[in-house]
Structure formats: C-alpha cells, structure tokens
Design a binder for these strands. Structure first.
Lengths: 250, 250
DNA sequence: AATAATATGACCGATATTGATTGAATATGA
DNA sequence: TCATATTCAATCAATATCGGTCATATTATT
C-alpha cells in the first residue's frame, strides 16, 4: 500500500472512531507499529490528528462528523436546511456560518435575490455563480478540514459588516449555552453574533446535551432555533422558558 | 496503445480508486514501470494527478479536462505556470492573484510546504485540502465571473499581510505600464504590490501591446516577468532596458 | 528506403521507507 | 514509593522506489 494511501486511511479511521490505538492501526493496515508511529508523527506534525499516548485522537468535529455520516442525520440536516431557507425573504442580507447544516441552507439559496455573507469556502463555491445572489466572502486563515476562514483577518472583516440575519450551527448545546469545538471558530462566531439583527441557530437534535470545548454564547442568545423532531420534551421546556422561538422541523 | 490513450487511462483509474501504485498501473496497461513512471511525471507536471512515493493520488476536481483540450495559448499558460512554480522554494510565503495563469501556478503548489495567500476562490478551492500548504484567503465582494474577492474588505485584509513573493497576471502591457480591465481589481492589486518583497508577473505573450481600462503600475515595477517564447524582440529590448528580469518559457 | 525523432524497457547508483531492536521515558498498580 | 509493564524515540540493516542513462524499438519525415 502507498504511504499516502495508508495515512489517509489512518485519518479516516480516526475520524470515524474518534480514537485509534497503535495496535489497531498496525493490524488494520497490515504493517508494523514503527511505520504507524512514523505516520502518526507525520500526521500530527501537520495537525490532521492529535497524538496521544498509545494512539491518536481525531482533532476537530470528531463526534459530529461521525453522526453526519449516518443517513438519518443527513436527511434531517437537509430538512432543516430547507425549513430555514423558507424563512429567508427576497432582498434579505444574511450571514452564513460554516458547517454542513448551513451548507444545506445555502443549497436552497442558489438563484435567489439575496446578499449573502459567508466565511465558508464550500458555501461560497456554491453561490459564486448564482446570478441573483450578491456574495461577500469573509477571508482569513483557512481551516483545512471544514473550509472555513478564521482568525484575526476574519474577525476584522466581520467588524465592517451588518446583516439582517445570521444563520449558524453549533457543535453542542447544554443548559450553560452553546458551544463549539474550536476556539478560533468561536471567536469569529462571537463577532458574527454582533453583526446580525436576528440570530438563527440550525442544529440537529443530537447536539443537545453535548458539550464542546469553547462556549459561544448563552442559551437565550439566538432569536430562533431550528431543530428536528428528535428533540426531547425536557429541552423544549427549557428553551421556551428562555423565550427562544423554536421551529421543529419534520 | 497510444501514449495519450494510456495517460487518459491512468487518470481515469486514479479518479476511480483515489490511489494507484506503479505496479498496478504497469500491469493494467501492460507496459513497463519506466513508462508508467514517465507518464506520471508528465501528468503530475500538468497538475492532473499528484505523485506520491510508489504511485499516484488523484488530485481534486478536474477543471483540467476542460482546459486541456483548448488552444495552444492555454498550454503556454500551463508551461508558464510550471516555470513559475519551480521558482518557489519550500517555506515561501506567496500571494497569488486571481486569473487563469496564476491558477496554473497553483496547480503545481498542491502539497508543497508553503504559505499561500490568495483572493481567488478557485485557487483556494484547489489548495484548501493540500495538507502541506497553509492557506490564507482574502475575502471581499466576490466578482462572479472570475471568482476573485475585491473591494474594501479585500483591500483592508491585504493591509495586514506581508509576503515574500507576489505572483500576478495582468490584462495588458504597453510601454506605459501594466493594465487590467476592472478598476476594483486594480485597486486590490495595487495593494498587493505593496505587500510583497518580490513581484512576479506571469503573462502570455499575447498580452503585450494590448491596452486595458485601468493602469496598475509602471512597466519596471515587477522584479521578474515570466512569458512564453512568442514575445517579440522589440519587447525583450524594452524590458531589459527597464531592468526587469525576464524568463522566457519554452 | 533511409533517416530523424520519439517512445520504450532495462539497468544502476542514490535515496527513502520499512520493520526490528534497543534503552529511555512514561504510566500503572501494589 | 517502588517495581513492573507499556509506550516512545532513536538507530540500523534490509528493502523498495526514484531519477537518470543507455540501447533498442517504434513511428514520422524526407
């Protein structure tokens, strides 16, 4: 097997399982631990994966990525995306955060007369040739896996922008608030929150009760949350007690 | 089997499988490893496929298919792109302007250890998943036709950036200087000129003697110009009298 | 047909990768 | 704390791959 191919498989395996031990990988790839060790060193050096004693852990959206793979979660994302897009009115100016859910929203915005601001490369790619849509891209350091622009350049660019609606997704929601896994991302998203009149959060129910690294904002900060019908009653009560408008998509 | 036919099969196989080893290919095509090796060198040179030790990996979306079959001017662009890319050293920080010629340069930068700054969406798309390459995207208003970011946001972002080399292409070159067709673009490019230690212009010979809307800079502003061999002697004299280093690609 | 130009396959020294081994560093558990 | 068991980083010999060269075969041109 080719070295690059092997490394790709390692990343893939780590993505799916969140963690992988040296032995597992050596057996899976039918190679020696030495080689795996060298590969991990290489991949870690590049930030694709984080080494831990005895193996590796996937860095980034590990848990969510896994869930995204399941078709059920995906089709829910699509439904959520459509529902959010239906809310958008002609001539709106909207800010689209990166993420697979917001990408689903963007799919429904092609060829609609809108001003769209985004820091997501895939979303920009989708909308750049949409004739009716005026597209403004937020630049910055490109985070490789998800293709979103982060860092000081992104934050600075967001300072000069005002939009009617922000559509964002988050990595986890607990009673303490909304979370995401990457602190650079959270910093950019906090700036986004300041630029929008109305904040809309689009998540699948699986994110509720799950924690992540950095706190993004309080639970009552969004004006509206779009979520699929998998949300349990307890959470519905909590949200309505916080005066967050909720749209259950099915 | 014809060489071109054989190469086409190699690309096809790589597309389908993601990876292909030398041995696999040699067997599949019923030819020697030497020949396959030469083919891979050729295909890698065109950016259609990425060589890795022991074989090849398929690289990104094949815009190439479309461009491959077009005029001679394009293959000159490819050659220029390759020549410019050879100049770039590991660890360099470079700023890539938008345009088809610079896109050809970018094809040869995939998987090389570099810091790349660009305002071009297609170039970003090409490099975002190149693991060795750190990518910084300049945002702004997206100009639909060419997919480059322009306007005040782009200009502002460029103010905070310094790079070793700027690689740009221009719409026209006359004795009065370099020109481009869009004044927003020229404004951004003038800012780019300020951020780079060394300015490299990559153009095909057809641009010489041609005018365009907005003046970008004087003829002697670039440190180096890459151009194909179609450039006539008169222009060579003019450029050398201006102390611009010239590389004739062929 | 003769010649030139190009493509091919085999070979070889240089280089990179691999797997095993070792002692050092770190974690585990009494 | 100490003893034991893992895991780690470094090293080395064996192996695989690379780039270049050369003789031969194929194709194009005169």
């Amino acid at each position: 097997m080719l070295p690059d191919q092997r490394r790709e498989k390692i990343v893939e395996y780590a993505e799916n399982n969140g963690f992988a031990s040296l032995q597992q990988l050596a057996e899976l790839l039918d190679t020696s631990e030495s080689t795996v060790r060298r590969d991990l060193e290489y991949l870690d050096g590049k930030g694709q994966v984080r080494r831990t004693r005895g193996g590796i852990a996937y860095v980034g959206e590990s848990l969510t990525d896994f869930e995204e793979r399941t078709t059920r979660a995906l089709s829910q994302k699509q439904r959520i995306g459509r529902a959010v897009a239906e809310l958008i009115e002609p001539g709106d100016s909207i800010l689209l955060d990166g993420g697979t859910t917001t990408l689903e929203v963007a799919r429904h915005l092609v060829n609609r007369p809108l001003q769209v601001v985004t820091n997501s490369l895939p979303i920009a790619q989708l909308l750049v040739n949409s004739p009716e849509t005026e597209l403004i891209l937020i630049g910055g350091y490109m985070y490789p896996k998800t293709g979103v622009a982060l860092g000081p350049i992104a934050v600075e660019a967001l300072r000069t922008i005002r939009v009617r609606r922000l559509i964002m997704s988050v990595g986890g929601i607990t009673k303490e608030g909304m979370f995401n896994s990457n602190s650079l991302l959270v910093e950019a998203e906090q700036r986004m929150l300041e630029t929008a009149e109305e904040v809309i959060v689009a998540v699948d129910a699986g994110k509720f009760g799950r924690n992540a690294l950095s706190k993004l904002c309080d639970l009552d900060r969004p004006d509206r949350i779009f979520v699929d019908s998998g949300l349990n009653e307890n959470w519905k009560d909590i949200l309505s007690s916080k005066n967050v408008e909720m749209t259950i998509v099915e």
